[in-house]
Nucleic acid binder design. Structure first.
Lengths: 183, 183
DNA sequence: CTATACTTTCAGTAATTACTGAAAATTCAA
DNA sequence: TTGAATTTTCAGTAATTACTGAAAGTATAG
């Protein structure tokens, strides 16, 4: 199978960007290929299109699976496994954010929690703990917020985002209403 | 210079996490060390504390500088350069988000823009472009929103975040007010 | 069962990235 | 200027990570 130049470029770009994220080139390219492919692809087709060894594709797919970024399906009269990227781009975005939180944020948060609770006699440790607490509180707040917002419907979220900094107007409005109603 | 066990653990953890992000262990550790250190440190002190070669520290500091995550200063009667992490954790967060956007998002966005504008005769390309447009629009929206929110005062932002999904209540309220006022 | 189609694992190797020490460059006091 | 203190660069090497082919594993049709 040969890709069109358009898909080629997309796939190659994703490969490069992949390395700026934590994921490697192979994984980036496989994902990109699935993302722009209308029909599901099997591992051999992927290996062929990207010129990777079959085993490399197998490992890449496993990695993508661990990120929950692929869907697996079977076609009638075909024993091979076929892969696609989830349709809904919002779902993809959520999944990605979720996985990154789990892998990159949560461990740090729990380390910080532990460190803050330790005894600290000397001034250095006192200062260090103060700094860690600042970091912890910020991360925790953003994380909690993220979890909440996560549950909103895409349309609601879209609406909120499109408002941008204008949400502050709503905040002011809220405060005024409170004053008026005497709350 | 020897670190306290508390700082040790923090620094080591950051080194490990560093590799889950795009940055390497050295850079992660240097940053962590600066972050929990009350007084500015010079490159030799860093090399000593972390047991890295002087040149490695030099490179790490350069990398951190390119992320705008260090501040440089001079002490009286001392020619050496002293480094600190910025005080304000919100500023750090912004800087980080900003840099990541520049390096990891913007290039993709412009690639997508180009790809979408290209001619597409065959159905594959048509589909690919549709998918790219979806991705482009989502990323663009989130980016624009981010840029807007970026400018808010930390306190305002905090307030918004603490509300979490309750902002939707405000949205509903707004809509009701519009109806009442006939807008 | 058995044969076949397909997938995964893994040891070895290739490629990439990180790190070091020596040398060059820079800065600044005298 | 000179030279001592400091920083940066860079070629070589070490360590890590990515990739491959062969072999083992798994599933299913007959």
């Amino acid at each position: 199978m040969n890709m069109t130049p358009l898909s080629q470029d997309f796939v190659l770009h994703f490969g490069e960007m992949g390395s700026r994220w934590g994921i490697n080139r192979t994984v980036g390219q496989i994902y990109a290929l699935l993302y722009v492919s209308e029909r599901p692809l099997n591992a051999d087709e992927i290996a062929d299109a990207l010129q990777f060894s079959r085993s490399n594709v197998s490992m890449g797919l496993k990695e993508l699976e661990s990120w929950r970024l692929t869907k697996l399906q079977h076609l009638p009269n075909d024993r091979r496994e076929y892969f696609t990227a989830p349709e809904d781009i919002w779902a993809i975005f959520r999944t990605l954010a979720d996985e990154r939180r789990k892998r990159e944020i949560d461990p740090t948060l729990s380390m910080l929690r532990d460190a803050i609770l330790r005894g600290a006699n000397n001034p250095e440790d006192k200062y260090a703990q103060k700094r860690m607490k600042e970091m912890h509180d910020l991360i925790e707040m953003v994380t909690l917020w993220f979890n909440e917002v996560h549950r909103l419907e895409p349309d609601t979220l879209k609406q909120l985002m499109k408002m941008g900094s204008k949400v502050t107007k709503l905040l002011e409005m809220k405060d005024k209403l409170k004053i008026v109603s005497g709350k």
